[in-house]
Write a protein that binds this DNA or RNA. Structure first.
Lengths: 150, 150
DNA sequence: TTGACAAATGAGAATTGTTCTTATTTAATA
DNA sequence: TATTAAATAAGAACAATTCTCATTTGTCAA
């Protein structure tokens, strides 16, 4: 099931690259695949290490540049959190929000229509031309709540 | 007016430090003052440079450690944004949200009751024990909209 | 007020995350 | 299969932050 899903997304990715005249390289495929496989919002370094087993000569520069490219093309998102120095990446380009565990620094995606509306007038928004928004929720995840109690 | 405001806040700060047995040093006062004076969400480096004219021997280590302390004590907030490597600090510890200009990277505080409610059940929140939340709005500020048009 | 002592600071080294540079390799296409 | 622009690898360079430790300073008790 996940395999089918992945395959479709990878095929879509390849089609997308061709359309934009972006070379479909092993490295790009591996980096995108690594992001699809992870729900952990990995850092560039995480991805670098994940890929290293299959591509021992992969370079950090390639990982960084590729992630930058993917984000510019709108197929992934860069996210960042206070108390974390390294940027994280998210293969889910659709509107969604984040649950951040202040104990273990776990990040979960949260999709909920209630959070997607931004019911403010342009004036209330200081006349900004709004592109999108993300609700960042700080809290304690179930696992860490458990740890605290015991 | 602003002066009066500031003085009160500084006195409050001194009282707060005494209560917690935190030494009231020139450096701590200067750093807190610098944050109060700025609406720009300055970085540690910004603060370091601001203070340098009055305290030529101030050390970056002191600025970083002091900001960390202030945040731990809940009197300021650390905030971070994708595409910005340095963390920023905010002397407004109350719930508020952020307007981020994707062009000029300006950050404005936004307070609005509509954004303060988080109308989701515990289940919808993946059973997280919620502490707080911030709405991060990406957009283009009025000044940059102007620049684009001309 | 002064002296003792813990707390805080300064200076710079070390570490971490990211970007840059350049020679080499590779994907696309003709 | 040859050509060529695009992409990559390797590591240097840079930027942000943390660490180390000797020196200085605020606090508090006498």
């Amino acid at each position: 099931m996940a395999g089918v899903m992945e395959k479709t997304r990878i095929e879509e990715f390849i089609r997308f690259c061709r359309e934009r005249h972006l070379n479909v390289t092993h490295q790009r495929l591996a980096i995108y695949q690594a992001l699809l496989n992870s729900t952990e919002h990995p850092t560039a370094e995480d991805i670098f290490r994940t890929i290293q087993s299959d591509y021992p000569t992969i370079s950090r520069a390639t990982v960084y540049k590729t992630l930058e490219l993917f984000e510019r093309e709108g197929i992934i998102r860069k996210v960042s959190f206070p108390h974390e120095t390294a940027a994280r990446y998210d293969a889910n380009p659709q509107r969604h929000h984040h649950l951040f565990c202040v104990q273990c620094h776990r990040v979960e995606d949260l999709s909920h229509p209630q959070l997607d509306a931004l019911p403010l007038s342009k004036r209330a928004l200081n006349n900004y031309q709004v592109i999108d928004h993300v609700v960042h929720i700080n809290g304690i995840c179930p696992a860490c709540q458990q740890k605290r109690r015991s």
